[in-house]
């Protein structure tokens, strides 16, 4: 297992907390999947890319939709086009392998990067979007890292076990048998210090006074009762980029807070009309 030698310790563009590092390293060392949960916008999906970067592996993403089936990840047998081809008398129709389309898991199991390095990071994004049986259907495949192709009788096995990172938004509960095989990490909403570090990584030139005001407003906003969608890290980053691009002075933020107006460019923070109204109502009071 070549991946075990590398250790994940955050990257230049990603601030990883201590517990996250341990969880990732445990998952890498033992080649078990890592399940990541957390509020939307706390960097669950980005984590996979950063882990891949820091381990020097390629990233294969499998984005799950409500219609995704476990089989899609393994392979698909395109029986329909084979039928068509047979009627049209195409050559190659005898070879069933021509109609087997490898899925993301197959790719990940057999992936060899351009430089000849085996192994990769496989991201299974938003696993809770799929049917509830979906994780169960993948149990054996993720556990043994191999599966059987019935149509051709071939067995696909991962020589180098990929690092599997799974994200979930908690829309559905995941089955216990699946959970038992994973490491679990819950990305907490970052505290002010971590947030400051995160922003400095993304916007190196940000001025201290602007940052202080923006953070104050942001955390204040998150405390506002009854918001439908509380602004998260990604929204804060966008907002600060806008503030910097528009060269909004820190005093403008301060003034808006003291006078109880909506902060400038608040559309970047609140994506919901009702939330904006709610905030406006509270501010006026």
């Amino acid at each position: 297992m070549s991946a075990t030698e590398a250790r994940f310790s955050g990257t230049a563009t990603y601030i990883a907390t201590e517990d996250l590092k341990v969880a990732v390293n445990a998952a890498v060392t033992l080649s078990r999947p890592l399940l990541v949960k957390g509020e939307p916008g706390t960097g669950k999906t980005v984590l996979a890319r950063e882990v891949a970067d820091s381990l020097g592996l390629d990233l294969i993403s499998w984005h799950i939709k409500s219609t995704t089936k476990a089989q899609h990840g393994l392979y698909e047998y395109d029986a329909v086009s084979r039928l068509r081809d047979s009627q049209l008398g195409e050559p190659g129709v005898k070879e069933i392998g021509n109609y087997i389309r490898p899925g993301r898991l197959w790719d990940a199991f057999t992936h060899v990067s351009g430089s000849g390095k085996a192994g990769c990071v496989l991201l299974i994004d938003e696993i809770d979007k799929a049917d509830i049986e979906f994780p169960n259907d993948l149990l054996l495949e993720l556990d043994r890292m191999e599966f059987h192709v019935h149509e051709t009788g071939q067995t696909v096995r991962a020589e180098t076990r990929p690092v599997v990172i799974i994200t979930s938004n908690n829309e559905k509960e995941l089955p216990d048998a699946f959970l038992r095989r994973c490491f679990f990490h819950y990305i907490r909403f970052p505290d002010v210090e971590t947030m400051r570090a995160i922003i400095e990584v993304h916007h190196p030139g940000v001025k201290d006074d602007l940052l202080a005001e923006a953070l104050g407003l942001f955390y204040g906003l998150r405390e506002v009762p009854g918001l439908k969608k509380r602004p998260s890290t990604s929204e804060l980053l966008d907002w600060i980029r806008l503030l910097m691009a528009d060269q909004v002075p820190p005093s403008a933020l301060k003034a808006s807070r003291e006078e109880g107006r909506l902060p400038p460019l608040s559309g970047a923070l609140l994506k919901n009309e009702q939330d904006l109204q709610q905030l406006d109502r509270l501010a006026r009071r």
Partner: peptide, 12 residues
């Protein structure tokens, strides 16, 4: 502590 948490707890 972090490791034990990531291993034994599967629900926030």
């Amino acid at each position: 502590y972090h490791l034990a948490r990531a291993t034994l707890v599967k629900d926030e």
